[in-house]
Design a protein around this nucleic acid. Structure first.
Lengths: 216, 216
DNA sequence: CCGCATCCCCAAAGATACTG
DNA sequence: CAGTATCTTTGGGGATGCGG
């Protein structure tokens, strides 16, 4: 199990469970659905096999996640979040928000693709914050807010479609600057989207040393 | 500086700054105002002197906090959060909330005192969530919500006074169970208070091994 | 005393190889 | 594929020292 802090404090309690290196990155990945061991390994670069195995065991004991063995046809074991693990969503959201405000804009060549947009949106906008159906397009990636949640892929009959490039996406989220965002359909959708985001915004901390881009 | 994760991800970015052991506990303590080195040491039990010095240096480089030297009369150096450090408030709030939902009720003998109630309320209820003036009394500790923020001590002319014991305080926050809470003044104040808390509640995770109580 | 710096030890982290 | 075993390296933790 994780290191303990000798304090009767909920923050110390939380950190003793998910405060160790790699733990929250594992939870981050599983936030979008169950994954296998090898999937996790390749989605968490720099994490060694024994570290992942250790963290998975600790998090399972803490009932943050659970192992599931898929039925006989393809007998694979996957890791899925429990209710306690899913409840870390708001923590990841605030942490991502704070980190994003310290990061500079994405490096010039970088683009979204392969569901990265959906994963980014899922940690950026809280569940049930947007009632309308809004399709978002960044580079070649498409996602949608529908029924209060974020889904990968295009919408059937969206109320609005927001189209932008990755750099515009960053400025929209961090700086609340909607220049560069093209809106089709309901003109109020952009305001609705912005209202769903946390109120605090703008850069904080030192000027970025290595520019990075929003993800997962 | 903190360990790095080789990822262009805001969560990884945040964790590389405040993800190491003790870091967030230092930020937690400074949330309530500047403190000296020795004050921090005694408020963070288990943290060794060199660890605290190292973390303070790292967090200063990261511009999460800054050293301030008080004027000549009493030339002491204190540590204060920067804007970036204060922006960690929501992170601490969600983390505390998640930890509190995993903790059992406070052990029988435990009581609040010496401003612990104010510190607990400050991380429990977001700023500007309550417009009224509500005085809260737990055991012998008194705090108040006034002008949207939490202050230590009794209120001048409160709209309502909520009185309870520590165990009731825990059940009110975590279980949303207002039994045991005495309300004087505006009867709607309790509902106002509850509405200011995050929506998610109820226990998560394994049954508590060592019961703990909310703090700071 | 306050605010660290230094030294040493050990437990975790990290890299790699290997196995059911 | 899903880990375990083994080895090396690094950082956390305790004790102590030392200047202001």
């Amino acid at each position: 199990m994780g290191r303990h802090y000798d304090q009767y404090c909920p923050i110390a309690q939380a950190l003793s469970v998910v405060g160790e290196r790699w733990s929250l990155l594992v939870v981050r990945e599983l936030q979008h659905g169950p994954l296998r061991y090898s999937d996790l390994l390749e989605r968490i670069p720099g994490c060694s096999t024994n570290m992942l195995a250790t963290r998975l065991r600790d998090l399972e004991v803490a009932e943050v996640l659970e192992r599931e063995t898929l039925p006989p046809p393809a007998p694979a074991t996957v890791y899925a979040l429990t209710d306690a693990g899913l409840a870390l969503g708001p923590v990841l959201r605030e942490l991502a928000w704070w980190g994003a405000r310290r990061m500079g804009p994405p490096p010039p060549g970088m683009t979204f693709g392969n569901g990265e947009l959906a994963r980014a949106l899922r940690v950026a906008v809280p569940p049930d914050a947007v009632a309308e159906t809004i399709e978002v397009r960044v580079d070649d990636d498409v996602a949608r807010l529908e029924g209060g949640i974020v889904l990968d892929g295009a919408a059937e009959d969206p109320d609005a479609v927001l189209t932008m490039e990755l750099a515009d996406f960053y400025r929209l989220l961090v700086e609340r600057d909607d220049a560069g965002v093209a809106v089709e359909g309901d003109p109020g959708a952009l305001a609705t989207f912005l209202a769903a985001l946390p109120p605090a915004h703008g850069r904080i901390g030192p000027a970025p040393t290595a520019p990075t881009a929003p993800r997962a």
